[in-house]
Write a protein that binds this DNA or RNA. Sequence first.
DNA 1: GGTTGAACCCTACGCGGCGGGAGGTCGTAG
DNA 2: CTACGACCTCCCGCCGCGTAGGGTTCAACC
Lengths: 236, 236
Amino acid sequence: MTVRALYHYDEIGLLSASERTPAGHRRYTERDLRRLYRVRALRALGLSLEEIAGVLDGAADDPESMRDLLAEQLRRLDEHAELIGVLRQRIRGLLRQAGDSSGLDPDRLMTTLELMSVFETYFTEEQRERLAERRDALGGEGVEAAKGAWAGLVEEGLRLVETGVPAEDERARDLVRRWDALAGGFHPEGPEGERTRAAARRMWQDNSEEIGRSLPWPAERMAALVTYLERARQAG
Amino acid sequence: MTVRALYHYDEIGLLSASERTPAGHRRYTERDLRRLYRVRALRALGLSLEEIAGVLDGAADDPESMRDLLAEQLRRLDEHAELIGVLRQRIRGLLRQAGDSSGLDPDRLMTTLELMSVFETYFTEEQRERLAERRDALGGEGVEAAKGAWAGLVEEGLRLVETGVPAEDERARDLVRRWDALAGGFHPEGPEGERTRAAARRMWQDNSEEIGRSLPWPAERMAALVTYLERARQAG
DNA sequence: GGTTGAACCCTACGCGGCGGGAGGTCGTAG
DNA sequence: CTACGACCTCCCGCCGCGTAGGGTTCAACC
């Protein structure tokens, strides 16, 4: 604990010494000290200074506020922990990819990174939520078939992009539909639809690994494809 | 992704459009875009912009830097996750205390908070490490005895403080020794020493609950005692 | 040609929680 | 009297942008 923090608490009105010496030096009374202990303890639990001020000044009026704040903080910590878990998964996937096949391949790692970014912006928030919901309901047998489906679809799409088929073409619309299905969108029911959705779930689940392995196309071509699909989608 | 972020990347030299129109508008080339994808992906993994700049500009020279950075980031995330786990434990303990005994008692909660702060500063880093090491080697039978030991010791210490015994007194030195033993310091061997150390470990383990239950003394008196012990310790 | 609205530009201030430094005053000991 | 530390106020800095303000440019329409 440094004096600078005390000055700061004074500045924002959270805790100021209730007395001063004639020379202007701060004199913290016993009550100030008790308040300081509370502030420090709540800070150590991760609360913001504003929240601390709120609960310390309003605790007399509303004895539940303290518990509410702690519960809220617990919720935030849970959320935060989950996010960290996801990040750890992704990084571990990347490190596995970097470590296994004949030493590390920075270009491939970079391509994976670019694809992560492209896919992150391509999938809508809603789609990702749906994928997360049903994530666990999936076995591992459809994965190879899924890779094949993705690969075929992307190859076909890239051919369309390069031969310059306009986005209003019927083949483009069909491609969009199948792409959406793989991406977890609204596909007609039936076994094939389920298989493709499952593939998309699995693929998103640990996306870095799967995207890196199963989609070895240059990122700029992928970006072009995504742009093309977006235009085709808007064209109906 | 907003334009403001792009301006920012430009400002700090992380990513700038390599062309401009005659009117001054930024023109991002395909290569710029690929670099942007990489930046975004690495940001999403939690790396700082400075680190990203380092690895993107030095990746050609040193192909291992990328992997090192990811490994480093994984380590940091692990650390962070552990810290969050500790905080969650503490808050859960506080909420349990607030919820069980006949509704919540904000004063008691506050007292617990103050004590947490006092103890946090009182225990040295070394002591806490030692406690963490042997934390799991403890059963649950010594807890009640431990509470009694703490209670008796603190009562005795508070009496000494209030009757004004000087810190150089032999009784004060004895108190410091026993206090240190409870706090995980160096106590003479034997069954009693082990029991007191075990009590200290258990007490620190979920400190909020135990401190709140077993030490129902006002925080300012505890603070006075801690100060007194500190002086006695320094007096040898 | 004029006008309009969207898109782009630059500049500057703001956040949270202090760290760190400059430059001055106060307290105490030799 | 001097020295040294502790304390004071004021101000700039960090990170990763968000937000606001005021000025240009672009494409389209009248």
